[in-house]
């Protein structure tokens, strides 16, 4: 059995995220993942806290908080606060941030894998009540501690894509959040599991969360919105991942340039049904749940029904989770 969750982003409006938080328990949603659209919409930690306090048994995680944007001390303090509010249900999602976001923010990291590994180590030291002194490309801490007496257990999940990052996730993370075409997901899970085995970890120790844009076609979803989301996903997908796919590289460049110049809207005109099928899950309720099961068979421990949410998405979400639970009960 896999965990079935919902992904939301900070750019969604309060009424939508409220509805998800208020109905998560009754719909049987196992987890909510909050994606940070940097600088847009609701503030990530406040939104995450709100979802934790609206629910009792649902796991809530950030998917992800970029270490390139926030001070590591702020990430640690937010995590500690959220862990308390959620009574241990909070998951710290961590990553370096999407390619397009980093370009937009003018951020560059010369050694992103090293930086993510060190950031993870620092957070774990802080959660263990330790004082940390460290200087790296991104961090500079001097005898910094969270001033807590008891250690806190906050799982750290990576939101990463490239092979080196996936290997790092297998070695040190408690989980990994994957996104991309099915062929890539299969590859990524293999890389993560192999890296975990190589350091003597059980493959079960690293949860594999797969978050894909989910476009239900049975409740009037917007094709335009779906194309925009897929355009952003394509533009954010690293070369190594695209090399696994049979897609014309010039076409990919057109999408990237469009997104880079005018945002997701600019890339949407180059997205066709073929690309939607590769990068997203779409179809009827049964088709979507079938695909969730197929992703689980690849090794995913959790599947996330991700935005775009359009049309009567509330009803679509209700039906999809009803179907998931019907099949679980059989």
């Amino acid at each position: 059995m896999y965990r079935a969750s919902v992904g939301i982003t900070t750019s969604m409006n309060v009424s939508a995220t409220n509805w998800i938080g208020e109905n998560a328990e009754s719909l049987g949603i196992d987890g909510i993942w909050v994606g940070e659209d940097i600088g847009i919409g609701q503030e990530t930690s406040i939104l995450t806290a709100d979802l934790l306090s609206k629910t009792r048994d649902v796991r809530v995680g950030t998917g992800i908080v970029p270490i390139t944007i926030h001070n590591i001390a702020t990430i640690a303090r937010a995590a500690l606060t959220l862990q308390e509010i959620g009574n241990g249900r909070y998951i710290q999602g961590l990553g370096v941030g999407g390619i397009q976001d980093l370009i937009k923010q003018g951020k560059q990291l010369t050694r992103p894998v090293t930086e993510l590994r060190k950031s993870t180590h620092v957070l774990r030291q802080l959660f263990k009540t330790e004082a940390v002194t460290i200087q790296t490309e991104l961090m500079k801490l001097r005898e910094f501690s969270l001033r807590i007496n008891e250690p806190v257990n906050i799982p750290i999940f990576y939101g990463v894509r490239g092979p080196q990052m996936l290997k790092l996730a297998g070695k040190v993370a408690d989980g990994v959040i994957l996104s991309g075409p099915i062929d890539y997901i299969r590859y990524a899970i293999e890389v993560v599991d192999e890296a975990a085995s190589n350091v003597g970890r059980s493959t079960d120790e690293v949860e594999k969360v797969v978050w894909l844009p989910t476009i239900p076609t049975f409740k009037g979803g917007s094709e335009k919105l779906a194309k925009r989301v897929v355009a952003l996903v394509v533009a954010d997908t690293p070369e190594q991942v695209l090399d696994l796919l049979d897609i014309d590289s010039e076409w990919i460049d057109k999408i990237r340039n469009g997104v880079s110049k005018s945002g997701p809207k600019g890339g949407a005109e180059f997205i066709d049904q073929h690309l939607i099928d590769i990068f997203a899950i779409s179809g009827t309720c049964d088709q979507i749940v079938d695909k969730f099961e197929m992703i689980h068979d690849l090794g995913a421990t959790e599947v996330v029904l991700g935005p775009p949410f359009s049309g009567d998405w509330r009803e679509a979400m209700t039906e999809i989770f009803r179907e998931i639970h019907l099949r679980r009960d059989k």
Binding site: E43, S45, I46, A49, D50, S53, A73, T74, R77, A78, L80, T81, L82, E84, I85, F144, S145, L146, R147
Partner: peptide, 16 residues
């Protein structure tokens, strides 16, 4: 304060 819980989150919880 840089070494304790994050105030914006607490402000939200206090408001509730």
């Amino acid at each position: 304060y840089p070494a304790t819980r994050l105030s914006p989150i607490i402000a939200s919880e206090v408001a509730k």
